[in-house]
């Protein structure tokens, strides 16, 4: 997951972009939208999205209707200059890994389960901190007793690797739990804040004739000068009301690029209806994503992230080993004392 982008690229699942002369004019968004529908006749557009690192690319999300199963949505990248399709997104082996990692193909129950596992992971870390004191109070920091038994050696490594990764593991665990409940929190936002924004338009039908996408985007960007579009949600999708476009704008730093600002625009006229900040709980979800995957500080941070993951696996493995050794010792001890008692009993 840490190297998602690199693996997709290496396996050829990332779209290959043509090089255009600097300053070449981009096509209108309406032209991209038409190209996406021509590419998938009978479909409707759900979203259009922009990748921060690929300014010449527009991603289109199409499905048979705005309320179809999100798992059947087709995500296709188009060249912003020529409206040529450049490849499907969200396919390939890394998507399988992502699904296994988030819900194990079990939908919302799978996410709840993963969230609970993440929570237990955090409790395990805290219990390790509690045990750290009695096991190390007679030792110096990072003491590795190599001359003692194998069990003691693994105990010392377990304690060292565990204690130096506590903060990182708690952050990755905690942000993982938050991510697991992202869908639930999105639902809360839809029912409360979003519903309140759309309330004056309640009962209005889905627009028969959609406004020009370029007009929608242009009006939205006037609301927050200096911000770039992250994505447009079409009327009826989960990110907006049945009557509105929602344009989500973002800044350009690692933090502000996550904290998107929604602008609601009338689906028929393209005029701005309302704008707001996201509630704190949704901001928490958006900020927690980089802190979980470690993809926000360049390649060195990704490599560090991967090594710390290896450390965590060693801590888990050695913890299981130490527990198993201790249990077999206790059992043997119990058997010995039972045997001794039996011997005493028979002799008397």
């Amino acid at each position: 997951m840490i190297f998602h982008h690199e693996i997709d690229e290496a396996l050829g699942y990332a779209p290959k972009m043509d090089v255009h002369v600097p300053g070449a004019p981009k096509l209108s968004l309406d032209a991209i939208g038409r190209a996406a529908i021509t590419d998938h006749p009978g479909s409707v557009l759900l979203y259009m999205a922009w990748d921060k690192d690929e300014p010449g690319m527009v991603s289109t999300f199409t499905n048979t209707s705005v309320t179809s199963d999100p798992q059947t949505t087709v995500v296709k990248a188009f060249d912003a200059y020529t409206a040529k399709p450049v490849g499907l997104l969200g396919t390939g082996p890394m998507l399988v890994m992502l699904r296994l990692h988030t819900d194990m193909y079990l939908g919302l129950p799978g996410k709840w389960f993963m969230g609970i596992m993440g929570f237990l992971f955090m409790i395990a870390i805290i219990s390790g901190v509690v045990l750290y004191w009695p096991f190390t109070r007679r030792l110096n920091f990072a003491a590795i007793r190599k001359q003692k038994s194998r069990r003691v050696l693994w105990l010392d490594w377990h304690n060292l690797l565990g204690v130096v990764t506590i903060v990182w593991a708690l952050v990755v665990g905690g942000t993982g739990v938050i991510n697991a409940y992202a869908e639930v929190m999105l639902g809360i936002w839809q029912r409360n804040e979003l519903a309140a924004m759309a309330a004056p338009y309640a009962g209005k039908p889905t627009p028969a004739q959609l406004a020009s996408l370029d007009k929608v985007l242009g009006n939205a960007m006037k609301v927050a000068p200096g911000m770039d579009p992250a994505f447009i949600a079409f009327p009826g999708t989960p990110f907006t009301s049945t009557h509105h476009f929602a344009v989500f704008l973002r800044g350009d730093t690692p933090l502000t690029s996550r904290l998107v600002k929604p602008v609601l625009l009338d689906g028929e006229t393209g005029e701005v209806s309302d704008t707001s900040e996201l509630p704190t709980y949704l901001k928490a979800v958006l900020v927690s994503q980089p802190l979980h995957f470690g993809d926000y500080g360049g390649m060195p941070l990704k490599i560090i992230w991967a090594l710390l993951t290896v450390f965590t696996i060693i801590v888990l493995g050695s913890g299981l080993y130490l527990w198993a050794v201790k249990r077999s010792k206790v059992r043997r001890g119990a058997r010995l004392s039972a045997g001794a008692q039996a011997a005493i009993g028979s002799s008397s």
Partner: peptide
């Protein structure tokens, strides 16, 4: 890179 990488160095 320094702060998060420190555990690896140790």
């Amino acid at each position: 890179w320094f702060g998060v990488g420190l555990p690896i160095a140790i």
